[in-house]
Every structure is written in structure tokens, then in C-alpha cells.
């Protein structure tokens, strides 16, 4: 299955539903080591992404992701708004104006998203952020794509890797974002942004399965 306009739209739709279904959990994670708004932020942001997609009626998968990113930046606020917003926008731009792409292009788009987040936020692997879920996921996706594997398989592997990355944030001490203010007390909790990244990648796996 190729990644086209319909699939891209289905991805954002599924991501929004997944985040809304798990809004309370995301908020709870953020309350423990942040300020307790990550669930609301992501729900608001992905709703705005859907609204913007509906308004813009994009005709390529790249445009779908750019529209999603713009919607997220415009309405989310917080750290996750600019970070996820730039990520989707840069992923969309990486897809160019192709009507449909295969695994290698989608893998490159996901890598562009990761780079956007790193550039904007200045964080790296191990800082206990969404990067700790996204970076291994991108690597897993690209490994399968490089072997000629289909998008479905790559996306499933990415979601699994994100989940492991999420679990691996538990023993980390946060060095970026609000959780860093807690110092050693940030240890022992999942990072909320890594949790939402995992949900979003699981949604990709589901709509491409």
C-alpha cells in the first residue's frame, strides 16, 4: 500500500482519535513531571490539524502533512505546538508534490520531522523527550524501507521501536522541557511527548496495515 492523500488524511484522523482516547493518560504523565496539559494540547493541536486539512483540501500527501503542521502550530501553544507543527510541516515538504510515495520517501520524511524537532528544540536522544521515541522509530522504519519492505511493515516496526523508546525514557533524567526543572525527580516516569509520539506512529501503522 502506497502513502497517498487519502492515507495521509487517514493517518492524521486516526492520530487525533488516538490522542483524544488517551488524553487523560497523556495529561497524567505531564502532571507528574510537567504542567499537566499535554493531553489537552495534543487534542487541540490535532483537531486543528484536521480542521485545517478540511479547509485546505490538500491534494497530495505532502500537502496534507503541511496543512496538519500549520494547523498544529497555529492552535496548540506550549512546547509541543511548535515541535510537532514543524515536524509535520517539514515531513510534508520532504514529500514534495508526489501524488503517492513508497516506504523510502516516507522514511526520509519521518527523518526530516526528527531533524526539525532537534533543530528547533535543541534536544538530543537521551534528554527524555519525544525524540527518544521518534529517533529509534525513524531508524527502524528506514531499515525496513532500505531492505525493500512495504510501508505497513516499516510503520509497524517504527511503532514498536517508539514504544520501546518510550519505555526507555522512564529511568532517564530530563534535560529539556519542563520536566528538566524537576532534576532527579523527573526519573521514574514516562515522558509525555514520547507517549504522544508513540500514539501517532501507532496510528500510522494502523492506517497503512
Amino acid at each position: 500500500m502506497a502513502f497517498d492523500t487519502a492515507t495521509a488524511t487517514a493517518w492524521i484522523t486516526a492520530a487525533e482519535a488516538a490522542v483524544k482516547a488517551d488524553e487523560a493518560r497523556l495529561t497524567g504523565l505531564d502532571a507528574a513531571i510537567g504542567d499537566g496539559d499535554h493531553g489537552a494540547n495534543m487534542a487541540r493541536g490535532l483537531s486543528a490539524a484536521l480542521t485545517n486539512i478540511a479547509e485546505k483540501a490538500p491534494t497530495t500527501p505532502g500537502d496534507v502533512l503541511v496543512s496538519a503542521g500549520r494547523g498544529i502550530v497555529a492552535k496548540t501553544g506550549g512546547a509541543s505546538g511548535p515541535l510537532y507543527g514543524s515536524a509535520f510541516r517539514r515531513a510534508g515538504k520532504a514529500l514534495g508534490d508526489a501524488a503517492s510515495v513508497e516506504a523510502p520517501e516516507l522514511g526520509a520524511a519521518l527523518e526530516a520531522a526528527l531533524t526539525a524537532i532537534k533543530e528547533l528544540g535543541g534536544a538530543n536522544e537521551g534528554d527524555k523527550t519525544m525524540i527518544d521515541a521518534l529517533a529509534p522509530a525513524v531508524a527502524a522504519f528506514q531499515a525496513i524501507a532500505a531492505d525493500g519492505g512495504p510501508i505497513a511493515m516499516a510503520a509497524a516496526a517504527a511503532a514498536d521501536a517508539a514504544e520501546q523508546g518510550l519505555a526507555a525514557t522512564i529511568p532517564l533524567q530530563a534535560r529539556k522541557g519542563r520536566a528538566s526543572y524537576l532534576g532527579p525527580r523527573s526519573v521514574g516516569h514516562e515522558d509525555p511527548g514520547a507517549a504522544s509520539t508513540t500514539l501517532i506512529l501507532r496510528a500510522l501503522a494502523e492506517v497503512t496495515a
Binding site: D37, G77, G78
Partner: peptide, 11 residues
């Protein structure tokens, strides 16, 4: 002013 405890958006 943003949402409660959430920074405002760029626009």
C-alpha cells in the same frame, strides 16, 4: 495570554 499554563501561539 495562552490557555491555562500553555504558551500562546505564534499568530
Amino acid at each position: 495570554p495562552g490557555e491555562v499554563y500553555t504558551s500562546p501561539v505564534p499568530d
